[in-house]
Simulated scan of single mutants.
Amino acid sequence: MAIGLHGKYSIGVLLTFILLAAAMLYVFPVISMITGVKGITAFSFSLSRIVLWAILLMLFLYSHFVEKGSFLLKGEKKYSLAFRVKAMISLYLICAIGGAFLNVVLQLLVQEKMSEKLFDLTSIFRHNYFLIIFTCFTAGAVEEFLMRGYVQPRIEKIYNSPVLGIFISALLFGLLHSTYGTISQVIIPFFIGVVFAVFYKKYSNITILISCHFMIDFVSLMIMNSFDSKHLSVF
């Protein structure tokens, strides 16, 4: 029996989550097995980012050959440079201030330590500006294209509910950060995911979100790059 378009959308959303979850959980063991490189190095981390681009390509091909439609269901609206700058600054401030507030609340409630995985990554980013830029661009482009561009509108179509599109895409976005091993690395990305999803629903512009996502990650990694690792837990 032929699968309807909503069924293809459902498979695509499930495929997105499975591929990203597999990459988060198994990419470094697989890279280590293939290359013989032990632990997380700048080389192995770069390869892991390339894997994310490969996943984006797979979903693009799925949308083209299986769904037989556009990868971005929502048409990309154009805005002036002034609007883009204002939107990026507003989104950044909302995410930074909201994320900081949530972090303080979580510290008061659970007093969790800094993510060990994030702590380990500080050494490979130290003064490696190419890796910082490549990592931030990959996160911004791949995660926004997949979570907001691909997953959100398909969930909305499947359930005929913009609210579920926003909530489920943000929830998946948060859960995919759970490999960092802390509650804050799920809650704060979930919050950012909601903010970004609401913006995407209202303004239908993925490039603004990619740019803002890049800026959030770039500032965070530059802070990691500038401070001694033993002081990073303050942030």
Rank of each mutant, 00 (worst) to 15 (best):
residue 207 T to F: 15
residue 50 I to T: 03
residue 71 F to I: 04
residue 187 I to E: 02
residue 45 F to T: 02
residue 55 I to T: 02
residue 126 R to Q: 15
residue 40 I to S: 07
residue 122 T to N: 10
residue 119 F to K: 14
residue 209 L to P: 02
residue 189 P to G: 10
residue 161 S to E: 05
residue 72 L to N: 10
residue 65 F to V: 03
residue 18 I to T: 10
residue 187 I to R: 05
residue 45 F to Q: 05
residue 190 F to V: 08
residue 74 K to G: 09
residue 62 Y to D: 01
residue 65 F to E: 04
residue 108 L to K: 15
residue 60 F to Q: 07
residue 176 L to Y: 12
residue 173 F to I: 02
residue 142 V to F: 05
residue 12 G to R: 06
residue 223 I to K: 04
residue 109 L to T: 07
residue 58 M to G: 13
residue 190 F to R: 12
residue 206 I to Q: 03
residue 225 N to R: 00
residue 75 G to T: 14
residue 233 S to N: 15
residue 68 K to G: 04
residue 124 I to L: 08
residue 158 I to C: 04
residue 40 I to L: 09
residue 219 V to P: 11
residue 182 T to C: 11
residue 32 S to C: 05
residue 166 I to V: 11
residue 46 S to K: 11
residue 139 A to D: 04
residue 190 F to M: 12
residue 100 A to D: 11
residue 160 N to Y: 13
residue 228 D to T: 09
residue 17 F to S: 01
residue 145 F to C: 07
residue 3 I to Y: 13
residue 107 Q to N: 13
residue 5 L to P: 04
residue 193 G to Y: 12
residue 110 V to I: 10
residue 53 W to I: 02
residue 215 M to V: 13
residue 28 F to N: 11
residue 80 S to L: 02
residue 171 L to F: 10
residue 156 E to G: 01
residue 167 F to N: 05
residue 16 T to Y: 13
residue 217 D to G: 05
residue 9 Y to W: 05
residue 125 F to P: 01
residue 202 K to A: 08
residue 58 M to Q: 04
residue 185 Q to T: 06
residue 140 G to P: 00
residue 86 K to R: 13
residue 41 T to E: 02
